[in-house]
């Protein structure tokens, strides 16, 4: 267990800078999730921590050691790969013990560690099987077993659940989380699935185009996204955006005026984007008119696609909605939960 410190870390492939100066302080024992759209550099950053990719500039420290020029095996990290990277010609037992064999552990010690890991991950019955004889979820657990037998300082996961079906993903998500709670090892977990990020993370790092957009706890990111990108990326269905202008009367967009969150005096006349999450639109007889486009009942809630102020939006209601496409309903945004972003930079204004 050790903290991990990234200071102004950069990486270029040829002339292209893929990681453009990342600063993150990962606390000892923390579960940190790196999330972002495809190609934003999450895997590259993780591989740099692992030592599989060189660092163009900046500094990475694990514990109190700067590891920039250290081979992976000296970094005391364990990595779980997206496709598991199990050795196909070795049994589950050998797969898990392989790293220990090469670190000078005795046979009995290896057997003991492997048994311990198999116990935790419920693999005891599968030790003699080969990877090709396992299901996706079992392979996933073997890959985790291989990581935990070494008792490393840091776990690195690169989209470990993306090859599993939706149901198994939820199960394994919980398993990884409880494993972390049990072992308390500092973990860096890469995913492009924001639900995974929200449910598992102590803190989330949202990345985009090789830069960090925001770092914070899941609810911080959800309640106070620092910019439009984070606001749109975190939350499902995504936040609704309404471009318009800030005035003394309120936020004017598409012929309607919405109440503003917070004071606006000095921002009169500024172009901005109004952000409101689907669950923060409530039915109200006095509210704004919206045309219903699509109603999707899901049992516990109802998702309605509608047009409000000329903009397509999604609203989610706890109650059941009987409206049909083409009809008009009236909605009121929850001002306290509304967000304002600068139209040009996307930075948060309120």
């Amino acid at each position: 267990m050790a903290p991990v410190k990234l200071a102004n870390v950069r990486k270029s492939f040829g002339a292209v800078e893929i990681i453009q100066g990342v600063d993150v302080d990962i606390v000892d024992g923390e579960f940190l999730v790196l999330v972002g759209p495809s190609g934003c550099g999450k895997s590259t950053l993780l591989r740099m921590i692992a030592g599989l990719e060189s660092i163009s500039s900046g500094e990475i420290a694990i514990g109190d050691r700067v590891v920039n020029d250290l081979e992976p095996k000296f970094r005391d990290i364990a990595m779980v790969f997206q496709n598991y990277a199990l050795y196909p010609h070795m049994t589950v037992e050998r797969n898990m013990g392989f790293s220990l064999e090469h670190r000078g552990h005795s046979k009995s010690e290896i057997a003991e560690r492997v048994q311990w890991a198999a116990q935790i991950l419920d693999l005891a019955k599968l030790l003699d099987r080969y990877p090709r004889q396992l299901s996706g979820g079992q392979r996933q657990r073997v890959a985790m077993g291989r990581a935990i037998v070494r008792n490393p300082q840091v776990f690195l996961f690169d989209e470990p659940l993306s090859n599993l079906d939706a149901k198994l993903r939820v199960v394994m998500r919980a398993e990884i989380k409880s494993l972390h709670q049990r072992l308390g090892v500092t973990t860096v977990y890469v995913t492009h699935d924001q639900v995974e990020a929200m449910t598992m993370a102590d803190r989330i790092v949202v990345m985009n185009g090789g830069k960090v957009e925001q770092i914070g706890t899941p609810l911080e990111l959800y309640d106070r996204p620092a910019n439009r990108f984070v606001a749109g990326f975190i939350g499902s269905p995504a936040m609704n955006f309404l471009p318009g202008t800030i005035t003394r009367a309120g936020f004017e967009a598409g012929g309607v005026t919405l109440p503003l969150p917070g004071p606006i005096a000095e921002r009169d006349g500024q172009d901005a984007v109004y952000g409101i999450r689907p669950e923060h639109l409530a039915l109200d007889g006095e509210g704004l008119e919206a045309e219903v486009l699509l109603v999707e009942p899901m049992g516990s809630e109802t998702q309605v696609t509608l047009r409000l102020a000329g903009q397509q939006m999604i609203a989610v209601f706890r109650e059941r909605i009987s409206a049909r496409p083409g009809e008009t309903i009236r909605l009121r945004p929850d001002v306290a939960a509304a967000h304002l972003f600068d139209a040009a930079s996307g930075a948060r204004l309120n």
Binding site: L52, E71, P72, K73, A85, S99, R146
Partner: peptide, 25 residues
């Protein structure tokens, strides 16, 4: 698959042993 070599590198297996224990099999 090149991930096997990466996994082995993280596992601390020397290049010669990678050849003998992964490549050859």
């Amino acid at each position: 698959p090149k991930e096997l070599y990466e996994a082995a590198r993280v596992d601390g297996v020397s290049p010669f042993k990678q050849f003998r224990r992964i490549t050859v099999p």
